[in-house]
Write a protein that binds this DNA or RNA. Sequence first.
DNA 1: CGCTATGTTGATCCATATCAATAAGTGTGG
DNA 2: CCACACTTATTGATATGGATCAACATAGCG
Lengths: 232, 232
Amino acid sequence: MPESDYPEIRGLHLFRNMTDAHFAALMRGAYVQNFPPQIELIAEGDPSDFLHVVLSGSVDLFSAWNGRETSMSTVRPIATFILAATIRDGPYLMSARTLEKSRIALIPSQDVRAIFDEDHDFARAIVTELALHFRSVIKAHKDLKLRTSSERLANYLLRQQTRAGGDAEFDLRFEKRRLASLLGMTPENLSRAFRGLHAHGVRVDGSHITISDRGRLERIARPSPFIDDHTI
Amino acid sequence: MPESDYPEIRGLHLFRNMTDAHFAALMRGAYVQNFPPQIELIAEGDPSDFLHVVLSGSVDLFSAWNGRETSMSTVRPIATFILAATIRDGPYLMSARTLEKSRIALIPSQDVRAIFDEDHDFARAIVTELALHFRSVIKAHKDLKLRTSSERLANYLLRQQTRAGGDAEFDLRFEKRRLASLLGMTPENLSRAFRGLHAHGVRVDGSHITISDRGRLERIARPSPFIDDHTI
DNA sequence: CGCTATGTTGATCCATATCAATAAGTGTGG
DNA sequence: CCACACTTATTGATATGGATCAACATAGCG
């Protein structure tokens, strides 16, 4: 794996505090690959041979059952996915596909488990990361069970606005059809939910969103830190 | 904390392989309390001061938003809850209440974090446990996004039958109203879903379930190991 | 430039929630 | 131990959120 990729990976919380020797050992077995868009990287049920790190591009984690399919989450640089499967040495519970041209680092799962046993700071980082992921899924689950689809959309827009630095205008980072799937609704329904939010100060032009009055949107969205704040 | 409780806690995967000294250190600050039914042990948003261990009875983890409430999961002996909040030292994302008279051990979160840094086997156990929990929530999330309510019920019944040793007859371990909430539906809807499963060989008498022909139920439930097998 | 995938809108259908009434338990205190 | 109160479960009627189907517009893309 080219040395030039090291700093990016090293900068992740997961790898930041481990010793140089252990990091080097991890990188020894790792390699980086470039993938075109829409390539299925892993499939639900496959053995978890590699921990994946998205260096550029983006990856969709999705799942299918009985002819239906749903997006579970999106991984953007720089971040890892399928950490839990790697730790447990179990099969993947989700499939993954590139959304665009992407560079992905692959680190052999057995190396991750081996270094975990050697390097305490790495172990600490993994458990912190895993706890964060766990809490994110809990939040997504609460979102889905407690809110209607337009409430989910309204809160999603508020989160994205925060992410964009609080500006009144920002762009959706997804195709709407995949946003719909992430939010647990159909594309048609998403269109209508957007239309319903016009009345609360949301303007939509393609993927460009304008929120004229955040307070007004918040009054109907009722965001909660325990669902919507992904930093805690 | 009474010595008599030690063996039960010690037997958990989480505490099984740590050194005696570290286990003793954890137990030093811990205490056990008896709670009557329907006591709220923790509330969403509270700081996570203690890791909880259910020694007897059972505990409902639930969450509320905007006047709605939903059961997220049930903790039965012997198991811990709110491990992720303890690890991250963050606020609870769920509330917890006793469902029946319960004995709960409370272990100060800071002790858990401290011993994590000292005892590698404990660290390994925590990360394994957390990865398992993570994967359970992913499964629950897939269940909710990919299945209709009666498909969820059918698969739930198949899982419970497996849990009961595969017998054709077994008892639900929940009030139906809480089972409905866990499955993400209303009690009325659960009644109708049960009625709908009569046609597929499911008999219901109070909380006593009879599955006359598992194969027949499986044909409509289509269980998947990546949603329904909670051991992987 | 034309093809294909995506997005929107309308009409309709279906799953699920809500509301209401009743029945069946369950627990409590006299 | 029974009567009463209260919660839970079931059933029916109805409302509604959301899915599906179909048509069309639009935007990317080769």
